[in-house]
Design a binder for these strands. Structure first.
Lengths: 188, 188
DNA sequence: GGCCGCATGTAACACGTTACATGATTGG
DNA sequence: CCAATCATGTAACGTGTTACATGCGGCC
């Protein structure tokens, strides 16, 4: 009963939630996820699902009604246990703390750009973030709160996070103007 | 001029910001980072820095004053260019959107737990998140806004993100009580 | 003097990405 | 009928993790 990776946990979760489904459906779900952390490439998904099957956490049978030899996956009791265990692991401090924000990371090092490039970076990021926020808000509107309330809350989380990032970046942008002026003065 | 990985970008950034520094200092920085995404293990840092050196993005010389044969790294002009390029890459949509929140992911799949386990998970996560928020707020208080304003804004971002996560989870916890009651009623 | 932290590195291993390979099905 | 998508998989490659290995420096 080794620990599930994040990808394995998500895959097990999908198979559990969406009943019998194909590996391809798992791939599609990962691809369409708002956090682009999940690429859902064939080279990761298929071997990973074979791993789960070898461990007895999912079962599969070939769908006879499909000429493409498509497989139908189902979670096993063992898999349900592993899934529950994986969810509970999320309470440990390391998993709680680990949010890596690429914009934040880059702002941390923005001092190594020229003042002009700094403004440019912030403007472009701001535009891209706002675009992302808009799509996230659309997805939330399109999600029915009653059908799957947990999915809805996850969508809401994405929106709230995006809003905070936008607000924070706006504040930073304001401050950046003043900082850059100070920079110029000190080098005069 | 291949694209830098996130780890390589951060490492270049540190070497650029902290002047001549040892590989070990880079490791320490990664280890102490609030986002536990960066483990800073020896097996990743040393080979990665050798890679940067082979590409001519950093230079190193052995510190003669140290008996441990410690190396001192410095960023090169080529490295500065690569760093600037890496920062600007952050404006593309994929890098903007990619925030993966382990709690959110687990909430999405929380339906596969028993109602009792759901509450347990949320309570534990809530406690851990609050603890994390407290340390983040402390770090922000300990950071001087004038010494390195960019580092300060990064710290502020961590705090704001953590606060939103706490508020969101509190809202979810409230809703979970009602949802669980509905669950029970529907199975009665 | 001994332990902990500094300091560097290597080797086996696991896993994800990219690219390749193949073929069925569906819609215009 | 032809293209896009469905559908499954493999192989090479890069890179991060864990564990191992070594030795100096400073502090109690």
């Amino acid at each position: 009963m080794s620990k599930l990776s994040e990808l394995e946990g998500v895959a097990l979760g999908i198979v559990s939630r969406d009943g019998p489904c194909t590996p391809y459906a798992v791939r599609k779900f990962l691809k369409s996820s708002p956090s682009s952390h999940w690429q859902g490439s064939a080279g990761s998904v298929y071997p990973m699902l074979l791993r789960l099957e070898q461990r007895g956490q999912v079962q599969s049978e070939i769908d006879a009604s499909d000429g493409r030899g498509r497989r139908l996956l189902q979670i096993t009791a063992k898999g349900q246990k592993a899934l529950a265990q994986w969810i509970h692991q999320g309470t440990t401090t390391e998993l709680v703390s680990s949010i890596s924000d690429h914009i934040r990371t880059r702002v941390f090092f923005i001092g190594s750009l020229s003042p002009k490039e700094r403004l440019e970076f912030v403007e472009k990021s701001f535009a891209a973030l706002n675009e992302f926020l808009a799509t996230a808000e659309q997805r939330l509107r399109d999600t029915d709160r009653n059908t799957d309330p947990y999915a809805w809350f996850a969508c809401e989380n994405v929106v709230l996070q995006a809003r905070v990032r936008v607000e924070w970046l706006a504040g930073f942008q304001k401050a950046l103007g003043k900082l850059t002026k100070l920079d110029k003065r000190s080098t005069e």
